[in-house]
């Protein structure tokens, strides 16, 4: 019995020791940031590279898990006969696969560091494709729009320049599930027409995002010292 008691006490002592070494738990950290996005390899016929701007907040749930909640406004060209506008609102879960390494836990002197992650998430998307003015006789009234849902996954890294400020670079592929808008342009007559296909259709694009984030608050949790 005494032996069991000693064993239990030594086990508890080990646990206390482990907690002392771990001085900081980042759960509950809320960041606010702005972002710039480039949309590449769009599935839409003749669609060119798009550029976007947006904002996000980031809420961390544990040492290894973070979340991004974002809004993006992206515009792109469909050759020179139409242009497309996308609004994305969604969230991503970021997982830090090598966060357990000692490199990421520097208790005293902070040094800038990279923190790689993999991410996956979901978003809602509103797209509007409009004819370039001056081409269609309907002029401006000619457009098509759709709502869709999307999933995205990719990789990225933070560059943590200070304990509270980071620049993040993310590459992710986003697949939209929803109605499909087809754009037909007759180069001979210069006539543009839209065809909407009902039902589930997959269309995707690669999004490269640079975001600037600053930790503004700690919503829960505390620092153990």
């Amino acid at each position: 019995m005494k032996l069991n008691f000693l064993f239990l006490m030594s086990f508890l002592a080990l646990q206390v020791n482990a907690q002392e070494q771990r001085t900081f738990n980042p759960a509950g950290m809320l960041s606010l940031g702005g972002r710039t996005t480039v949309s590449l390899f769009n599935d839409h016929k003749n669609e060119m590279t798009g550029t976007g701007v947006g904002g996000q907040f980031r809420l961390r749930f544990s040492d290894a898990v973070n979340t991004d909640w974002f809004f993006d406004y992206i515009t792109s060209d469909i050759l020179n006969y139409a242009h497309r506008t996308d609004y994305h609102i969604g969230w991503s879960v970021l997982f830090y696969p090598i966060n357990h390494l000692a490199y990421f836990h520097q208790p005293k002197d902070f040094k800038p560091k990279f923190r790689p992650y993999i991410l996956a998430g979901h978003c809602f998307d509103y797209s509007k494709i409009e004819a370039k003015d001056g081409i269609s006789p309907l002029d401006g009234a000619l457009y098509a729009e759709r709502w869709s849902s999307a999933v995205q996954a990719g990789i990225g890294t933070h560059l943590e320049l200070t304990p509270r400020f980071d620049i993040s670079l993310t590459g992710q592929y986003m697949i939209h599930l929803g109605n499909h808008i087809e754009t037909d342009f007759d180069f001979t007559s210069g006539t543009l027409s839209f065809h909407e296909h009902k039902g589930a259709s997959l269309a995707g694009h690669l999004l490269v995002t640079v975001s600037l984030n600053y930790k503004i608050a700690r919503l829960w949790g505390f620092t153990r010292r």
Binding site: T51, T75, S76, D77, T85, K132, I135
Partner: peptide, 8 residues
């Protein structure tokens, strides 16, 4: 980029 234009 300004997309709402005549052509390009």
């Amino acid at each position: 980029w300004v997309r709402k234009t005549t052509l390009s």
